[in-house]
Design a binder for these strands. Structure first.
Lengths: 314, 314
DNA sequence: GGTCCAGCCTAACCCCGGCTGAAGCAGATC
DNA sequence: GATCTGCTTCAGCCGGGGTTAGGCTGGACC
């Protein structure tokens, strides 16, 4: 059942109700009086009741019924006007819901503290987070279930934009007892003969393997897992080495085994960590400030896990 | 600042928000998809923000900003829809404000009990009353400050309608000590020689005098007053007789003097008491029920003051 | 009481905005 | 690669709402 009247007609109703005359209402809102007259007639027709009594050379005045309608029409207009205010506040203030996704690999190390500092700065923001692998994040961005996602620049689709934030060189993750654990740096050649535990997530697994393939090598994969913590514990228990771009804060696996993080050198391309956004979207101020916030906060100086170096303990 | 969007556009916004696709929204509300597409585009333009992300062959979905606007648009539409409900309830239920005027002469005897019985029957009605002389009532009816007025059929203007309710024969009001006080009925001829106290209100004074003029007589007016109570007390204190159409309940003047009410006979036209209404107005159900209520209640059986007879005590 | 004036309504016309079907285009699907 | 889906663009139609001009009614004023 579509509404059979317009906001304009309601505007004229309240204008006449306030002015007490079509003529002065017309003057006030810069419209000709026949327009207003027609609008009033339409509303009376539509609602089936008399809104005004005509007093000939003395304007109109509201009937009791008309006053009820008048009062309600005012409320409708006020609320409709709030839509403009709401739109303005969305584009001009940092507020409202913000859905941020994080790549499962490092979400635990990055997202919570980023969320803390951003919501402390902007308490009006209703922050929601979720985690997923890279393709899952792409999907949610396209559904608008996410406003932005933290991830890597791996096969970014054309309909999404990437804002680089930090460059992460890969590490070899080794148990403390590993023969290579004491090295200051390692190459894919050094690692290839040893057994490997692969962090097997879409796209990032391809990246890890590419470090070897670029040098014409093939790693000895003995185990695969989709979980960062499981990978660390497997390494800690001596099942093999692994490759990662992020170090945990503690330098130990979840089950307490000491790990060593040795920078990988040679033919390895560093990984770009950044924000993935819907491309070409005229974004809200909230989203733009979040992007700026990420730029300011996600630096090696402020986030230990992004800092290069041999040992997180150092 | 006129609103630069329409209710229809908001309807389309929520339809698409609910349907998740322009195509199915178009199907649902029987409009072509380009219309909806254009409406959405207009709103995005107008508010300066992106309401939906387009997912090509998979419809649209709301952005975070879009969801905020969507939620608010719903409220606006709901409230606009209530205007229809309000109009319906005005025309179909007995509710809302009702402004009733009463002629000052008898307002005290008639209006309060009428108001009591009507509001007991219809508690939803917000009853307002006011008193005035006949021209004042006409004026307020034309201003729509009154919905109806109780008065006499004296010079009813063409733009007002009259609903007769009771026929009131005039009385001579006499002090108990008056030489004519014991008569069963009196004629203007009987009264003319005696001093008269005139209730001097517009139109009704003309009526009282016409009782004499019709018989070629001229009363001896010794005092005039615009107040019913003052008139009674003047009569009670022996300053003269008076003429009235309504008897007070007690049969005594406000200062306790006994009064006699003797029916006037001869060339006297009875006065019609009735409801005065704006003519040709399509009235609300509330007003129509009030008219019906008056018809049912304002009878000599139910209202003692309307009862003909010599003595109210009888 | 005649004249003037104020203010609403009607008439005639115009134009922008919204609606439509058809065609175009970009992704999704298989 | 072919097909399908679904949004958008295009061209054209139509009507609602805009305007000015003029008629009508009732109040105001001399």
């Amino acid at each position: 059942m579509p509404l059979r009247f317009t906001l304009r007609q309601l505007e004229y109703l309240v204008a006449v109700g306030e002015a007490g005359s079509i003529a002065v209402a017309a003057e006030r809102i810069n419209v000709s009086s026949p327009s207003i007259s027609a609008a009033i007639a339409h509303l009376e027709q539509e609602f089936g009741l008399q809104l005004f009594v005509r007093r000939h050379a003395q304007g109109l005045s509201l009937t009791s019924a008309g006053r009820q309608m008048f009062d309600h029409a005012r409320q409708v207009l006020a609320q409709a006007g709030q839509l403009n205010d709401l739109a303005a506040s969305i584009t001009q203030t940092v507020q409202g819901p913000l859905h941020v996704g994080g790549l499962i690999t490092f979400a635990q190390v990055i997202l919570p503290q980023l969320r803390r500092s951003f919501t402390d700065l902007h308490p009006q923001v209703d922050f929601h987070q979720s985690e997923g692998d890279q393709p899952e994040l792409y999907d949610r961005l396209r559904n608008a279930r996410l406003d932005a996602a933290l991830g890597y620049d791996l096969d970014i689709p054309a309909d999404l934009a990437f804002v680089p934030l930090a460059s992460l060189t890969p590490y070899a993750v080794l148990p403390a007892s590993h023969p290579l654990a004491a090295q200051a740096s390692l190459t894919p050649q050094d690692l290839a003969p040893h057994p490997m535990v692969l962090l097997d997530l879409p796209l990032s697994a391809d990246y890890f393997l590419s470090c070897f393939h670029a040098a014409g090598l093939k790693p000895r994969i003995v185990e695969r897992t989709r979980d960062m913590g499981v990978m660390q514990s497997l390494v800690g228990q001596g099942f093999g080495y692994s490759i990662a771009n992020i170090r945990p804060w503690s330098g130990r696996s979840p089950d307490g085994q000491p790990l060593r993080f040795v920078p990988l050198t040679g033919e390895v391309r560093p990984m770009q960590l950044g924000l993935i956004l819907p491309a070409g979207a005229q974004s809200s101020l909230t989203l733009r400030s979040f992007v700026a916030h990420c730029r300011a906060q996600l630096t090696p100086e402020k986030v230990r896990s992004l800092r290069p170096g041999i040992d997180p303990e150092a």
